Computed example of a mutant assay.
Amino acid sequence: MEAAVPAFIAALLTQIGDRSPWLVAILADRYGRPFTVAFAALLAQGAGNAIAAVGGALIGPILTPNAKQLLLALALIFAAMGALWRLKAPDRLEGWRLGSFVTALFGVFVLALGDTTQFFTLAFSVRAPSPWFALVGACTAVLIVNLAAALMGELSWRQLPIRNFRIVFGLLTLLAGVIVGAAALRLI
């Protein structure tokens, strides 16, 4: 259970400044079906996070405690780098004629594959006796953010201070990553 809360918090903060909810807001506006789009996005990102949790379950037992801590430090530093990088608009998928559910499912899956949320799920799942709690925590956060984006729509979503949030989140996450990494390397 101890992996669920940190995975939830990390995924929630990461997703707020990510491109996936932006795409969800775009697709919810286009199709006028916010719940369908949000559910498809949850399944898409849930699949990616499930892959990360399986990876954590497989490699967790062979990693030392310091290696697990270093993996978390890398996840934090990569999240910081991603947050401090300029946010590029997602492809609007205008040429996709697959309907609201399938377009959101495949579009969000492709966009989110290998994103920071999945790296956090991996990092938290290797540290936990039951890695599935990291998956549950991350998916709960993904659902909350994507549902909010779908219900708000693109115009309202883009009016949020996402840029400022990303800068603050990136700086704090970078600091945390350096501290956790230094502790993993026994420098502090």
Rank of each mutant, 00 (worst) to 15 (best):
V110M: 15
G95W: 06
A7D: 10
R186K: 14
A141M: 07
L175M: 13
L58G: 03
L111E: 02
D29L: 04
F101W: 13
Q159F: 05
P61L: 11
I167T: 12
T64V: 01
V126E: 11
L84T: 08
T117M: 09
P6T: 05
S125R: 11
L98Q: 07
N49D: 13
L143S: 09
A41S: 15
A4D: 04
S156D: 12
W157A: 02
G82E: 13
I167Y: 09
L147K: 01
V102N: 12
L151K: 08
R163V: 10
L185Y: 04
L105I: 00
L111D: 01
G48K: 05
L105K: 00
A183N: 13
P6Y: 08
V126M: 14
E2K: 12
T117I: 14
I77F: 11
A3L: 03
S130K: 04
D18H: 11
R127C: 09
G114K: 07
A57H: 04
Q45S: 10
R186L: 11
D18T: 08
R97T: 14
A80P: 00
P61N: 06
I167V: 15
G32D: 11
L187K: 00
L63S: 10
V180S: 10
A11G: 08
F124W: 12
I9W: 03
E94L: 14
I167F: 12
L23M: 06
T14Q: 04
L172N: 03
P65L: 03
L87N: 09
R86W: 11
A57W: 10
A176L: 13
A89P: 07
A89T: 12
A57M: 12
L13A: 11
F8E: 05
R19E: 07
A67W: 00
A67C: 00
Q15K: 03
I59G: 04
F106K: 02
G55T: 08
A53H: 09
G137W: 09
T36E: 13
P161G: 02
A123P: 13
F165Y: 15
A149T: 04
E2C: 04
I188P: 14
A80D: 00
A10S: 14
A112S: 14
M1I: 09
G99T: 03
E2I: 11
F109C: 08
A52W: 00
A40M: 09
P90M: 09
